[in-house]
């Protein structure tokens, strides 16, 4: 399908959905038993698209949202950086030392089996209500994704490529740099979208469960006073925020993965 046509269809979906929402919440279907107008999507529960947009506008116009965006961004970036670094180092270590991997294997599985949300309160207790309890929550999510990918990547280096590299005279250190590292990095990058996404999830969930700033906090505040417009406005901002981050990730990974056999283009 041509690109403009696809774009038009994608837009159509949004227009239809917004239209249904708008009509459902503003045009009454008739009068209810109590004599009041009856809506398909009552404003109290669903707000209206125009109200939500207006709220987003005021949030940006008043400037109050920037601080929250910045806090969530910092938390997510710290969570990603620390989680990815730890995942890479420990993933390498486990992959190169089978004994270590065998000993820790059940514990790694146990830790990973734990739904991370339950850690939020205890992290708040340990690290306070500031950004660090959110950062560490994100770290526990990012770490396992990166760890498993690096572990897999290092262990699944093609034995022939490895033998060849050895025959070319590489020592252990050179193998690490020229063979294991690029192989592992490819796996890390293939999971980059997931791990960055989880860094944001960690931050937002942490904020939601107890904080005084951030997008999660904004949404939680609005929910606390049944301000549905505020909840939807927060969610909209969060969605765009995550998509913007995802876009940056795509820009970063493109030049780093040119060697990967991907889609072949002919002209």
């Amino acid at each position: 399908m041509s690109r403009p046509k696809l774009l038009a269809l994608q837009l159509l979906v949004a227009v239809v959905a917004l239209l249904v929402w708008h009509l459902g919440s503003t045009v009454p279907l008739g009068l209810g038993a109590d004599g009041k107008p009856f809506f398909l999507l009552p404003k109290f529960f669903f707000s209206t698209p125009l109200d939500v947009l207006a709220r987003v506008w005021t949030m940006f116009a008043s400037g109050e949202v920037y601080r929250h965006l910045a806090i969530t961004l910092v938390e997510a970036m710290l969570a990603f950086a620390i989680g990815a670094l730890a995942g890479i180092v420990i993933g390498f270590w486990f992959a190169r030392k089978p004994l270590v991997a065998a000993v820790f294997d059940p514990y790694v599985k146990m830790m990973n089996a734990l739904p991370r949300v339950v850690l939020a309160p205890i992290f708040a207790l340990w690290f306070g209500l500031g950004i660090w309890s959110k950062v560490w929550l994100g770290v526990t999510l990012v770490f396992f994704i990166v760890f498993f990918n690096v572990y897999q990547g290092v262990r699944e280096v093609s034995p022939v490529v490895l033998s060849n590299a050895r025959m070319l005279g590489m020592n252990e250190r050179q193998l690490l740099r020229h063979v294991y590292w690029p192989a592992a990095l490819a796996w890390v990058f293939s999971s980059l979208h997931t791990s960055v996404g989880f860094a944001v999830v960690g931050a937002v969930v942490g904020e939601y469960l107890g904080s005084s700033a951030g997008l999660g906090y904004l949404i939680h505040q609005a929910e606390g006073v049944f301000d549905v417009t505020g909840v939807f406005a927060g969610m909209l901002i969060l969605m765009v925020f995550v998509m913007a981050i995802d876009f940056v990730v795509t820009l970063v990974e493109k030049p780093l993965l040119v060697w990967k056999p991907g889609e072949t283009k002919t002209v």
Partner: peptide, 17 residues
């Protein structure tokens, strides 16, 4: 160490030109 080995299978490093 004094031998060069041309493998039967593909053995180039895919991440290097």
């Amino acid at each position: 160490a004094v031998a060069g080995y041309l493998f039967q299978q593909d053995a180039l490093m895919p991440w290097k030109t």
